[in-house]
Amino acid sequence: MLVLELMLIIFLASIVAGVIGSLVGLGGGVVVIPMLTIGLGVNIHYAIGASIVSVIATSSGAAATYVKDKMTNLKVGMFLELGTTTGAITGALIAAYVNSLTLELIFGVVLLLSLIPLIRKIGEDIPATPELTGLSEKLKLTGSYVETDGSTVKYNATHPTEGLAGMVVAGLISGLLGIGSGTFKVLSMDLAMKLPMKVSTTTSNFMIGVTAAASAGIYFVRGDVNPIIVAPVALGILIGASMGARVLTRARNPTVRKIFALVLAIAGLEMVLRALGI
């Protein structure tokens, strides 16, 4: 294939990945990696290197508009980044010693797990406010935000140590597979720390870029960020994600989400089967 052809195909595929990613509520990376590996036969290490860079682009772009909202809890985010960055560095370290097939297998499983929250809605209602004790009190892991109906919701975070441990795992997955792993960040804030869903999701967005930067640096110097792949992927996902965000505000269609979730489930399954040689 000619260079021009390859870059154009990757560019268009990445725009599609960005759109699907934002429609389904996942990052573009988790969509573009199967496209590059299954679809175009790109080495998964290069796919991961390009994806992690695009994760920084989309999350920084989105975060620029979120900085001033009062949903994001900067303290909770910064405290948990201690865990996500440590995990991300460890994940990028491990990735160097895992062969392509095993990486595809792990990726397929993680992709399937990421889809669970799309099928089963989790943590919709606001949890009861627990007492602020111990480390949470010391770190002032508390906050409040204004609901759409005008009421103020106050919340406290519990179990910061468990939350931090969950973030090490989320960071590890992010660093190992080159994805934002927002689902896993939200899960541990929701399940361990009992934070309201709106706070978990916006704070997760806040952490994704910093987490990705921690492993992207390692991938860069290792030579896994191939210019020919990363240029069309980063630009394409950036364009696709902003297009998706625009479509999303106009039409929230659960059927569309379900269709794309099904497509991603098939991609995940395909990667698992391929890795297992079935």
């Binding site: 860079v53 920084i56 920084s60 930067a213 640096g217 860069f220 960020v225 210019p227 240029a231 980063a234």
Partner: peptide, 13 residues
Amino acid sequence: IELGVLLLLATPV
């Protein structure tokens, strides 16, 4: 292109 990638990496930092 790699310089552009490095600028992107510097953003969250």
